[in-house]
Design a protein around this nucleic acid. Structure first.
Length: 275
DNA sequence: GTGCTTGTTGGCCA
DNA sequence: GTGGCCAACAAGCA
């Protein structure tokens, strides 16, 4: 589930509950896959009695800074979630990491275990964080950069190209479909076949969908919607794509589903033509 | 039991 | 060397 905006929703949930708070206890399930490449004992030692100082979201990843130069990186994978539970919470089967403050428990849970927790100690953020590509809403995400990337990936289907994090950090399956639907571009088109005007439209919709998804899903300022889908407008493809007999919110015509670029894809044939 | 699943990686092949 | 494609990772759900 978690793409850019969902990651920001979960980050904010932890941040609002624990910003400035002291971590009294750390609990982790020794499930190797989640902590691959990280020394759990170092994580326990560093975070116990440290404070939750700051947090940030980049692409689909979350970084929390603790006092004492501790950095916790979280990738939510396919099914990861961050929850806040009352103090004294007893970890459940899929809760891989629990940080207990005096009032609450910060829980990282992930049934499918495609997610990842990394720990780093140092004055500066870790390399695996700083090497994440520049955000789609940053000035570095230019129409020229997108055009050059599509030229290099000319033979690949545009749907698959939008999922490449090295150029479209934070875009996942549903955002890619939403962007293509709004741009009126068929997901199976070859990246190199897009006309300059279409590339510009795609670039603009990438930015627009990111901006709108962040507002709708993660809320504005200190506001946090009650759940992930609470703020999503009915005009989005997102709310129609999995409904049986789902229809395009723009044309009213039936939606189509198929595997494109290796991923389940939904589009509106009345609006997105293969030409 | 079967066949899916909103992510990422590594291996194979053209 | 580059890029495209697919299986694998694991668990839950219909």
């Amino acid at each position: 589930m978690p793409e850019l905006a969902e990651a920001e929703f979960f980050r904010k949930r932890w941040h609002l509950a624990a910003h400035g708070a002291k971590i009294l206890r750390v609990h982790s399930h020794a499930r190797a896959n989640i902590f691959r490449g990280t020394r759990i004992t170092a994580l326990h030692r560093a975070l116990t009695r440290s404070r939750f100082v700051a947090s940030e979201t980049r692409a689909k990843q979350i970084l929390v800074r603790f006092s004492g130069d501790g950095w916790l990186g979280i990738h939510l994978g396919m099914s990861g979630e961050l929850r806040v539970e009352p103090g004294g919470y007893a970890p459940q089967k899929h809760d891989h990491l629990v940080l207990a403050t005096a009032q609450r428990a910060l829980v990282f849970t992930d049934p499918r275990m495609f997610g990842r927790v990394q720990f780093h100690r140092g004055a500066l953020p870790p390399p695996w964080w700083t090497k994440i590509a520049p955000a789609i809403l940053s000035a570095a995400f230019t129409v020229e950069a997108v055009a050059a990337f599509l030229r290099r990936r000319a033979r690949a289907r545009i749907k698959g190209v939008l999922l490449l994090q090295e150029r479209f950090p934070g875009i996942g399956n549903w955002m890619a479909d939403e962007i293509l639907w709004r741009s009126a571009i068929h997901p199976a088109r070859r990246a190199g076949s897009l006309q300059p005007a279409e590339v510009r439209t795609l670039w603009r919709e990438c930015r627009r969908v990111c901006r709108m998804a962040l507002c709708s899903i993660a809320g504005i300022g200190n506001r946090l919607p009650p759940n992930l889908n609470a703020g999503i407008p009915r005009s989005w493809l997102f709310l129609h794509r999995w409904r049986p007999g789902g229809r395009c919110p723009k044309t009213g015509k039936p939606l189509a589903h198929a595997t494109v670029g290796g991923r389940t894809t939904c589009w509106s044939p009345a609006r997105q033509k293969l030409r």
